[in-house]
Simulated scan of single mutants.
Amino acid sequence: MIKAVIFDFDGLIVDTETAWYDAFKETMELYHVELPLEQFVKGIGSDDIALFQYFKEQLGERYNPEEIQSKADRIHKDKMTSPHTREGVRDYLEEARKLNYKIALASSSPKDWVTHYLKELQLLHYFDELITRDDVENVKPEPDLYLKAIEALNISPKEAVAFEDSLNGLKAALTAGLKCVIVPNPVTDALPFENHHLRLTSMAEMSLYRVIQLIDKD
């Protein structure tokens, strides 16, 4: 029986990822370097190691990671001046509360990044636990974040369902033993998701109650 729902953050609750892709793409254009979407998505849900390795290969002696990050940060900040939740997110959180599910967040981002947006969007109070990269040794696709969330909620993996938007997140959830619902964003929509238990275009497509019904039958 499902007792908890665990949400990813970036790209799922708030679509920061499309803004990050645009920010890095525009930054690379300043160096006359293209950033293919298929290269960018490799790090979604995890870290930027592969992304910056690509930059290093493309830029050679011009490679300056601090400069690149600084330029991208400024562009991203401009694009995220009025953040908003993805469609259906707030309804799912409200419904989870009414159904007496425990609610956690499992994010590869730093805690201050996550809490900043959750406070601004007035969502922080919904969560029983916030598990971020600050709490574990390894981020997604390793299962550490989900295992830590399960431990904090005092439940077993089979009693939780994860909501994810990336391949790295999906792998982390499945490896931890959770069922996983994929809700891709515009940047991750074309990724080759496999072995997930359900896929939605957005959380507005189906009620949380119905999702849990389908997941428990699976």
Rank of each mutant, 00 (worst) to 15 (best):
K3V: 08
A4K: 00
F9R: 01
F9V: 03
F9G: 00
F9Q: 02
G11K: 02
D15H: 05
T16P: 07
E17N: 08
T18Q: 14
D22Y: 14
F24D: 00
K25S: 15
K25Q: 12
K25C: 12
T27E: 03
T27F: 05
M28C: 04
Y31N: 04
Y31R: 02
Y31K: 12
E34H: 10
L35Y: 09
P36W: 10
Q39D: 01
D47C: 11
A50F: 09
L51H: 09
F52W: 09
Q53D: 14
K56M: 07
N64I: 06
N64M: 06
E66M: 10
I68K: 01
S70H: 13
R74E: 14
I75C: 03
T85D: 02
D91S: 12
E95V: 06
R97V: 14
Y101H: 14
K102R: 15
I103R: 05
I103A: 05
A104G: 15
A104E: 03
L105N: 00
S107M: 05
S108D: 01
P110F: 10
W113P: 00
V114R: 00
T115D: 07
L123Q: 05
L124P: 00
H125A: 06
R133W: 06
R133T: 13
D134C: 06
D134Q: 08
K140V: 08
K140C: 02
D144T: 11
D144F: 13
A149M: 08
I150A: 06
P157N: 11
K158W: 14
E164V: 00
D165I: 02
D165Q: 06
L167M: 14
L170I: 11
A172G: 13
A176N: 07
G177H: 08
G177P: 12
G177N: 10
L178V: 08
L178F: 10
L178K: 03
L178A: 07
K179A: 08
C180W: 01
C180E: 06
C180I: 05
V181L: 04
V183T: 10
D189A: 13
F193P: 08
L198K: 01
R199G: 03
L200C: 01
T201F: 09
S202Q: 09
M203L: 15
A204I: 04
A204R: 15
M206E: 10
V211Q: 09
V211L: 04
Q213N: 13
L214Q: 13
K217C: 02
D218R: 11
